[in-house]
Design a protein around this nucleic acid. Structure first.
Lengths: 251, 251
DNA sequence: TTAAAAACGAACACAAACGAACAATTTTCT
DNA sequence: AGAAAATTGTTCGTTTGTGTTCGTTTTTAA
């Protein structure tokens, strides 16, 4: 992230669908050249698509449902997601589970190439359908309307069939001992299976998860290889992560 | 992508199915030449297909060909779907497979109560998510972008787990012998399994299916209990249906 | 089939937009 | 404080998009 303008430009692009060089130059009170440089950077990062006179949302983005975009938009979530996506190479297999943060990760994977993505989250499938080079496998299960997740035995069994390079998981809460917690026992069994079947496990969770609690234990941070978040860990938790070899990425 | 108009033109094409040079020139307040150049660029990029006087959505590319198909015959499709939905009682279990006609049926089931719907069609899941009293089970599988279907072993296995009251199936073509045909052998194995596992089988297919052909045989009308369509059957086919006990509902 | 009308692509000229290079300024780090 | 790096503004040559005009191709109607 090089300029404070970048985030604002993206925000404007998201709400208005497009941005013009002239307009942005006026808004930010800089010269058009400066804006041009910003747009070039954003285009290179795949966040925008450059056009003559301005830029538009990268193709695919504009088709995502309004509600979805709203949910994904939270800045901290998308920064966390971006950092996580950057840690995921092209041409590998990834699992994404249920949760708005993992959906944000899916959004950031739009420009990755030749991924195989396995998910029990219908929103993830809808989002990544935009990425033509990505093979998407949907685990079956009962549709849970609250988050468009697929849960139950069917999901767990389907997942047992795969062994992925990277599992990206979200959780509802994270307690002081470094335990990942969730509300739904069915989803937990799915998450546990995923962690067991993945070569590496990445956890994405914003700072708000530290303040919440949930009844069911998924796993410990000990079993996580990389942890992406936006808030500093408590001293004891940071020490624990260090001793467990859990790399923490604070955005 | 070279112009703001490109994104807008694609958007218009997606919602309206086609665009005309004249109309676009008026909308964007540019000359027809400029629009022609835009359409040429988009056609070269494979996003649109050029026709005399305008352009249409490129066929076969992602889900836009699908959008086009969905609009096609939409009137007759929804009447067929409505008739089929009326034959489905509340509080029963239903299977819906891939296809625009079965999606139309899903739309007509929005107000049914306490259904259990099993499907390998993500669109069906999205549509019926609005019906709060409906339990939706999604069969797993590899996502096929052309129609948002879930195909492959995973789908077939998931379906083998269920036994439903009614299977509602669509097909790509229907030949003179009363054989149901499809293009994709993977999807066919799913459809066959469904028919075998259902207490009753309903076929929905508009008249255009009589004019087409497809390579893979799903089943015969003999195995179908009710057939919903909008065009009269040939005499021989009608006689065959009568002898098989296949009830035909011509809308 | 032929003739008229519409749509088309190519070529040209002009203006807007562009990127590169350099200088001025601010920020960051030692 | 001073050097190094990053950011921004300025200038200038180049590229790109646009409207215009032309002749050609395609469609439509007779």
């Amino acid at each position: 992230m090089t300029s404070f303008r970048h985030a604002d430009i993206l925000e404007i692009a998201r709400t208005e669908g497009k941005v013009t060089v002239e307009d942005l130059a006026e808004r930010f009170e800089v010269t058009v050249q400066t804006i041009r440089r910003d747009l070039s950077d954003l285009a290179e990062a795949g966040r925008l698509e450059r056009v003559h006179g301005g830029a538009v949302l990268a193709s695919g983005v504009s088709n995502i449902g309004y509600e979805q975009r709203r949910r994904l938009h939270s800045d901290s979530k998308s920064s966390i997601a971006r950092a996580c996506a950057e840690a995921i190479p092209n041409e590998c297999s990834v699992f994404l589970n249920i949760g708005t943060t993992t959906e944000a990760v899916a959004r950031e994977l739009i420009h990755h190439e030749n991924l195989v993505v396995i998910t029990n989250n219908i929103n993830v499938a809808n989002i990544l359908a935009e990425n033509a080079s990505c093979e998407i496998v949907v685990a079956g299960g009962v549709l849970r309307r609250s988050d468009f997740g697929l849960v139950g035995d069917l999901a767990a069994e389907a997942i047992a069939r795969f062994k992925v390079d990277i599992a990206v998981i979200g959780c509802s809460a994270l307690d002081g001992d470094g335990d990942l917690l969730d509300f739904d026992i069915q989803e937990v069994s799915v998450s546990r299976k995923i962690i067991a079947q993945a070569r590496e496990t990445y956890l994405v969770a914003d700072g708000s998860k530290f303040q919440r609690s949930a009844p069911v234990r998924i796993a410990s941070l000990r079993e996580v290889d990389q942890f992406f978040t936006d808030a500093p860990l408590t001293k004891s938790l940071a020490a624990a992560c260090a001793s467990w070899g859990t790399k923490t990425n604070i955005i």
